[in-house]
Amino acid sequence: MIREYLQSFNILTSSEIDDFLALCTPREMNKGDFFIQEGKICREVAFVNSGIVRTFFTQESGEEVTYCITFPGALLTAYSSYITAQPTVENIQAITAVELLVIPKAPLTALTQSSVNWITFLKIMAEQQYIELEKRLLLFQKEKARKRYQDLLTHQPDYIRQIPLQYLASYLGITARHLSRLRKEILL
């Protein structure tokens, strides 16, 4: 799956992809395991082969706010911490059993020194992170919860039922009770 993902950008050569894959290490996470926790420095990037991961922060009140859900076929990291080498304020946790391919920052940085293609690829990854953040922000500002939920149903129908109600409600910016009502209305 990761080979196809990397090939889809039409930037990297087969040899460059092989070099990348040689540096990746498989990692399995059980439901509830953390990829990274608040206060630690993120020094790796992962590709999600299977499973679902949530990214959340904890408010002063102790309430957890899920603001990102990552599905198979996507890259995963605590991006700000990864870039700045400062402790992260977020937690990345497995919602289901998860299979990752992980690459540490140092070898990935070394790849950028071996080929300009890697610099181009990482630039595109950064741009995609920005675009996803902007889309999410606009969705929250512009659309009602029903539309946000329907968009998720449209784009991730196979996974939506695997996400616990409280995480999904938090991700959508609504209460679990409101989400239950939305689900009933949409099924009617």
Rank of each mutant, 00 (worst) to 15 (best):
I163G: 03
M29R: 08
L6P: 00
I160K: 05
E38I: 09
F9I: 03
G173L: 10
T120E: 13
H155C: 03
E38H: 07
R27D: 08
E185I: 01
V53C: 04
R27I: 07
V53M: 10
S80P: 01
Y79Q: 06
L133V: 12
I83K: 11
D18L: 06
E132R: 13
L23V: 02
P164W: 03
Y67L: 09
E60D: 15
I119A: 02
L137G: 02
L137A: 06
Q129T: 03
V116W: 07
L101H: 02
T77Q: 05
I92H: 02
I2H: 05
I160R: 00
E64R: 12
G62D: 04
P26L: 07
A126P: 12
R136W: 02
L172H: 08
L168P: 00
D19S: 14
I124H: 07
V116L: 10
E127R: 07
A97C: 03
N49P: 06
Q166P: 07
E185R: 14
P164T: 09
E63W: 10
R43F: 04
R136H: 06
I83L: 14
Q162E: 13
M125C: 12
T88C: 01
L108P: 01
T112C: 14
V98F: 08
C68A: 15
M125G: 03
R183T: 05
L188Y: 06
E4N: 11
I52R: 09
K135H: 11
D33Q: 03
D33N: 07
E99H: 06
I17W: 08
I131S: 01
N10I: 09
Q156E: 13
F34L: 13
T58Y: 06
T13R: 04
Y67K: 08
M29W: 08
E127I: 08
A22K: 12
H178T: 15
F20E: 00
F140T: 11
I124W: 02
P26H: 01
Y5W: 07
K31P: 09
E16H: 02
Y149T: 05
P104Q: 14
P104D: 15
E4G: 09
L188Q: 10
L188D: 08
F57H: 15
F140K: 13
E4P: 00
D19L: 13
L187D: 09
Q156A: 11
R148I: 14
L182Q: 03
E4I: 00
E90Q: 14
I69L: 11
L111S: 07
K40V: 06
P164D: 05
Q128T: 09
F140N: 13
K142V: 13
F47R: 00
E38L: 09
L139I: 04
Q93T: 08
